[in-house]
Design a protein around this nucleic acid. Sequence first.
DNA 1: TTCTGCCCTTGGCA
DNA 2: ATGCCAAGGGCAG
Length: 283
Amino acid sequence: MRITLEEPLNLKETLESGQAHRWRQIDGKYSGVIGNVLVHIRQSERTLIIDSSSTLESEDFLLKYLRLDDDLEHIYAHINKDERVRTMTERYRGLRLLRQDPWECLVTFICSSTTNMKRISLMVENMSNYFGQKLELGEDIRFTFPTSEDISNTDEKTLRELGLGFRAPYVLNCGKKVQAGDLDLNTLIKTPYTEAKEQLMSLHGVGPKIADCVLVFSLDKLEAFPIDVWVKRALTDWYFPNQKPPSNQDLLVWANEYFGEYAGYSQQYLFHGRRLLDSKPTD
DNA sequence: TTCTGCCCTTGGCA
DNA sequence: ATGCCAAGGGCAG
């Protein structure tokens, strides 16, 4: 399948900005699993070239995942409040938020606690390889992400053996609650931000940061503004220098006021930009 | 009520 | 080689 892009998209920055952790590069293409489909995707200028393990009904599947329905020019106009953000939105122009599956997003970000992006991928791949269904595309073999049923039927020991460490009981508990119907993730898309955040934070292992990740990366809450160590660094270095760093709670209130309804987009550009500032040129 | 310090696991990296 | 760091959160005080 080929998709001609009408709107700006930078596939590389989008898939490598730490939102989703199942994308890997294989000779110039990105390999990833979306739902129960293994996808190979490559961007050439204004064209996306896509191969998949099963026939895609329509291109809407990818348009939705890549949030190509977001009007980036409109969003840039809102979040370009200063030179810092303007620099990032120009440097990484076309970086989009993704619209991920809420369950997968929740489990993945519970796993993100006190670890790094490579290790998050490791945990996610370990769980998928262990629980998931096999998908093949050419020589590439990947597995679907475990369902809440898969997780609810396993035990803490198994999850620890898959490398989750102290996060294992959090993921297990989360699977059991979702499977039991105590938390309906898919209806949270229609729930207002504050209430949806409260519901997510009622889960063990889910605090403000992880809740905001799930809200902005899978539940269409573009005002959510996850504050991790990198965003905290970006904000304290660039907006509150030479003073005692404000608390995360205060930063969150400030960011929502300053950046407005698309704060989540500004967060992604600040995160990505600040992180690459400390990485090696070869990275 | 809100803030602080400590603990939890372990792979990656210098 | 060995200590530090990593898209945090729970808990006690």
